[in-house]
C-alpha cells in the first residue's frame, strides 16, 4: 500500500507528511532551546552583582562574528540548493548543497579549534563557573545540531540524491524539510551569539 500525502498536500492541513513532521520536531526543539535560554536568564539575573562576566570580555567577538556570517551564508546556499531543484538544475543543487556542507563544517572547525581548545588550554571548563557551564551547554548542544544537519545534508548530497531520478518532487520536498531544519539551527545561533558574546 502506498503511503498517502508524501508529495501532495493533505486536504485538511495543506501540508505534506514531512512538513508536518519537521514542524512538530522543530516545536520540540524550540522548547529544548527555550528551556536552556530560560535557564541562562535565571542564572544571570540570580547571580550576585558584578559576578556574572561580560561575554565580550572572555569570549572572542571577532571569531563569533565570523562564525555568524558563515552560518548566514550557509542558509543562503541551502535555499539556493532547494531553488535549483525547483528549476530542474541538479548540478547547481549539488554545488549549493556541497557549499552548505562545507560552510557548516567550517563553523564547527572554527568552534572547536579556535574557541573550545584554546578555552580548555587555559583551564576553562564547564565546571569552572556558571557562565562557562551554560556557555558550553548551549554552544555544545547547538554544535551537535549543526553536526546533525551536516550529516543529513551529506546524505542528500550523496546516496540520498538518487531519489531525484525516480521521484523529483518528493526529493525536492525532502530538501525543503532539510532546509527548514538548517534555518532553525542557524536562527538559534542568531540568538545565541548576542546573548553569550555581546550582552
Amino acid at each position: 500500500m502506498e503511503i498517502p500525502y508524501t508529495v501532495d498536500a493533505h486536504p485538511e492541513t495543506g501540508l505534506h507528511n514531512s512538513k508536518i513532521g519537521i514542524w512538530l520536531f522543530l516545536a520540540s526543539e524550540v522548547m529544548l532551546f527555550g528551556g536552556l535560554f530560560s535557564a541562562y536568564i535565571l542564572l544571570r539575573t540570580g547571580s550576585l552583582p558584578g559576578v556574572w562576566p561580560l561575554g565580550s570580555d572572555i569570549l572572542s567577538v571577532p571569531i563569533g562574528t565570523f562564525n555568524t556570517l558563515v552560518l548566514i551564508i550557509s542558509s543562503v546556499t541551502m535555499v539556493m540548493s532547494w531553488a535549483s531543484l525547483k528549476m530542474n538544475d541538479f548540478s547547481k543543487y549539488k554545488l549549493y548543497m556541497g557549499t552548505t556542507i562545507l560552510l557548516g563544517s567550517l563553523f564547527l572547525v572554527i568552534k572547536i579549534f579556535y574557541e573550545y581548545i584554546p578555552k580548555f588550554s587555559h583551564h576553562h571548563f564547564p565546571s569552572t563557573d556558571t557562565f562557562y557551564a551554560i556557555y558550553f551547554t548551549l554552544t555544545g548542544l547547538h554544535g551537535l545540531h549543526v553536526l546533525g544537519g551536516i550529516l543529513v545534508n551529506l546524505y542528500f548530497w550523496g546516496p540520498g540524491s538518487k531519489l531525484w531520478k525516480t521521484e523529483p518532487e518528493r526529493f525536492s520536498n525532502r530538501i525543503e524539510v532539510a532546509g527548514l531544519y538548517w534555518h532553525f539551527v542557524d536562527l538559534v545561533w542568531i540568538f545565541l551569539f548576542p546573548t553569550l558574546y555581546l550582552l
Binding site: 555568524t68 548566514i72 532547494w82 532546509g179 527548514l180 542568531i190
Partner: peptide
C-alpha cells in the same frame, strides 16, 4: 522554506 528564509534574513539584518 521561502517564508522561513525571508524571516531568517530579516532577523539576521536586525542582528
Amino acid at each position: 522554506l521561502k517564508a522561513f528564509h525571508i524571516f531568517f534574513i530579516s532577523v539576521s539584518t536586525l542582528l
